[in-house]
Computed example of a mutant assay.
Amino acid sequence: MTINSINLVGRAGRDPEVRYFESGTIVANFTIAVNRRSRNEEPDWFNLEIWGKQAQVAADYVKKGSLLGITGSFKQDQWKDKNTGENKSKPVIRVDRLELLGSKKDSFNNGVSNNQSHINQQNPNDIPF
């Protein structure tokens, strides 16, 4: 039996880079920082790759600093450098499931939701009690 499953909770290190293909497929790439148990240590950084509907969710709602939960699998991207001809590689987490873990307040602060701003602008005389 073989298992290749990764679960991480962390914060987006940057806004997703999103690419749309002529076929209608979409891919989003960004990084996630996951804190270690000790606060004195630097976080671990992971490259994420998300395809399809989950990529559209990332494009619409994930911003730098968003708290996320992901489930995915490890893969090793490999390519040949065009300039040097050297073989290159980098570890990537292919995300199968993306969960937005931040609160509505976090979403508002990241510019995702404007419902709260509408509530704050109401006239105090309109309060029904």
Score class of each variant (00 low, 15 high):
71 T>Y: 07
71 T>Q: 11
94 R>C: 05
87 N>S: 13
101 L>R: 08
75 K>G: 08
81 D>V: 00
75 K>L: 13
90 K>N: 04
82 K>M: 03
81 D>L: 01
105 K>L: 12
110 N>I: 00
97 R>K: 14
75 K>Y: 09
78 Q>M: 12
83 N>W: 01
93 I>A: 06
106 D>W: 03
75 K>F: 10
93 I>L: 10
96 D>M: 13
109 N>F: 03
105 K>N: 06
85 G>F: 11
75 K>C: 09
103 S>T: 15
100 L>I: 15
101 L>T: 02
73 S>R: 15
88 K>S: 05
98 L>G: 08
83 N>K: 09
108 F>V: 06
74 F>R: 14
93 I>N: 07
85 G>Q: 11
80 K>G: 00
103 S>M: 08
72 G>D: 10
93 I>Q: 08
100 L>A: 11
107 S>W: 00
98 L>F: 09
83 N>V: 07
72 G>T: 10
76 Q>H: 11
80 K>L: 03
92 V>Q: 04
100 L>H: 14
72 G>H: 12
100 L>Q: 10
73 S>E: 11
101 L>A: 03
110 N>Q: 03
103 S>W: 08
85 G>V: 07
86 E>I: 05
74 F>H: 13
92 V>H: 03
79 W>L: 08
83 N>E: 12
107 S>V: 00
87 N>F: 04
113 S>A: 01
